[in-house]
Computed example of a mutant assay.
Amino acid sequence: MRQTVEILLNLIEQLHTEVKELREENQRLRDENNRLKGEQGQPDIKAKKPRGFSNNHSSEEERKTLKNHSKGSKNAHLKIDREEILEYPLE
């Protein structure tokens, strides 16, 4: 049973890489086709961060701990520099 699962996982990995390569080739061919038509191909945008898993994961306990976020009153920081009384017309 263990060998069967291992063989299946290897097959899945091979098929995954093949599908990825075929998608990249398909996109290259579409870009070439668009270029020959006089259109622009898909832009080549590089990712800022590498994809995949990183080993720097936080634990569940760290994610569940509450952080002290307090929003202070803005009125405490206001400085009143003048007072003015306005009249409102009663009509």
Rank of each mutant, 00 (worst) to 15 (best):
I12E: 12
I12R: 06
E13D: 02
E13Q: 03
L15G: 12
L15Q: 09
V19A: 05
E21C: 12
R23Y: 05
E25V: 04
Q27E: 04
Q27K: 02
R30W: 04
D31Q: 11
D31P: 05
E32D: 12
R35M: 09
R35S: 03
K37F: 05
G38I: 04
E39T: 09
E39F: 02
Q40D: 15
Q40R: 04
Q40E: 14
Q40Y: 12
Q40A: 15
G41C: 08
D44F: 04
I45C: 10
I45Q: 11
K46M: 01
A47W: 06
A47Y: 01
A47L: 12
A47R: 13
P50Y: 06
P50E: 15
R51S: 14
R51Y: 14
R51K: 15
G52S: 12
F53E: 14
F53A: 15
F53Q: 14
S54F: 01
N55E: 15
N56H: 15
H57W: 09
H57V: 14
H57D: 13
S59E: 02
E60F: 05
E60Q: 14
E60R: 13
E62C: 11
E62D: 05
K67N: 00
H69V: 10
S70R: 07
K71M: 08
K71R: 11
K71G: 03
S73Q: 00
S73F: 07
K74I: 12
H77T: 03
L78H: 06
L78S: 10
L78K: 12
K79F: 01
I80H: 03
D81N: 13
E83M: 09
E83F: 10
E83R: 09
E83S: 02
E83L: 06
E84S: 00
I85T: 11
E87F: 10
Y88M: 08
Y88F: 02
Y88Q: 03
P89G: 05
P89K: 05
L90A: 01
L90Y: 07
L90R: 07
